[in-house]
């Protein structure tokens, strides 16, 4: 059993930027920035610490109920993970501005009659929490990383054409996740188990035990990927027992088993191939 994980915690402490602070930032910015700001594709506040703080306050008041306090979305209402939109959809700042201002027609996402400055502050905040991956990957040997990956990870993970498919494909994962969350995923995989990777142990009507990952579930069935990687349909009425495990199928890789330098070698391989 090797490494896999769906996503890091990446949570943002919004309490550090409460609403009164946001209002203050807004007041300051309104004096500093000259309109018009709509109709452009570059955010004039990108990276501006005060704008990000103000945007965080606005986000909390206007957006967090649906998109979550950490902006990572709520699946049950199809509110997307806003930390991922920039990469997956290749959105421009102007397009995000338009979605906030006008809403998304045909969806639950409403329009917002915020000022241009406020919308750009929100965009700045979203840019600040975008999953941009490792900035300044520690030096490593990609060739050694490939070998370490094959030895430790490839039984479950695939990267650059090598390995299996029980866990997520890790090709380029370093471009999406921070170094801190990547290391945490390896050192303490039970701390967070993402949707699609929750573990269940079943005993079917013939008394056979099956352990696997819940890919989907309804009141009558489970769509399972068993620990051999096979996709299986399981009808709940046919089961003797259903035991839901809190941890991950992925084993813990303590530093004595995989030292930091080996990890960095693997990360370099994941980013660029061998």
């Amino acid at each position: 059993m090797k490494i896999y994980r769906s996503s890091g915690s990446g949570s943002l402490n919004l309490c550090a930027s409460g609403y009164p602070g946001a209002l203050l930032s807004l007041a300051v910015l309104l004096f500093v920035v000259a309109p018009p700001l709509f109709g452009q594709s570059v955010n004039p506040f990108e990276g501006d610490a005060r704008a990000i703080r103000g945007g965080a306050g606005l986000f909390r008041a206007q957006c967090a109920t649906c998109h979550g306090a950490d902006a990572k979305g709520i699946v049950s209402i199809e509110a997307p993970d806003l930390t991922q939109i920039w990469k997956r959809q290749k959105l421009s700042a102007g397009a995000v501005f338009g979605s906030i201002r006008n809403g998304i027609p045909g969806s639950i996402m409403p329009s917002h009659s915020l000022t241009d400055t406020e919308v750009w502050m929100l965009v700045a905040y979203l840019q600040s929490v975008a999953e941009t991956g490792v900035i300044g990957l520690p030096v490593g040997d990609r060739g050694a990383g490939r070998e370490a990956f094959v030895e430790n990870c490839s039984e479950c993970h695939r990267a650059h054409g090598v390995g299996e498919s029980l866990g997520p494909n890790l090709t380029g994962i370093t471009l999406q996740r921070s170094l801190e969350s990547l290391v945490a995923s390896v050192r303490d995989p039970d701390a967070f188990v993402g949707r699609g990777y929750k573990v269940v142990r079943l005993i079917n009507s013939k008394g056979r035990e099956i352990t696997g990952l819940i890919k989907s579930e309804d009141a009558f069935s489970i769509q399972l990927q068993d620990d051999t990687g096979r996709l299986r349909s399981v009808i709940k009425a046919d089961l003797q027992t259903v035991e839901r495990l809190s941890g991950s199928l992925m084993p813990e890789f303590a530093s004595r088993k995989l030292i930091d330098q080996e990890l960095f070698d693997i990360f370099n391989f994941l980013q660029s191939g061998a």
């Binding site: 008041a61 709520i74 917002h112 915020l114």
Partner: peptide, 18 residues
């Protein structure tokens, strides 16, 4: 949290952490 009131703008007056 105290909302900013404006006609045509929805304001829930805070956040819910689900």
């Amino acid at each position: 949290e105290k909302p900013i009131d404006a006609p045509g703008q929805s304001n829930f007056g805070g956040t819910v952490l689900i």
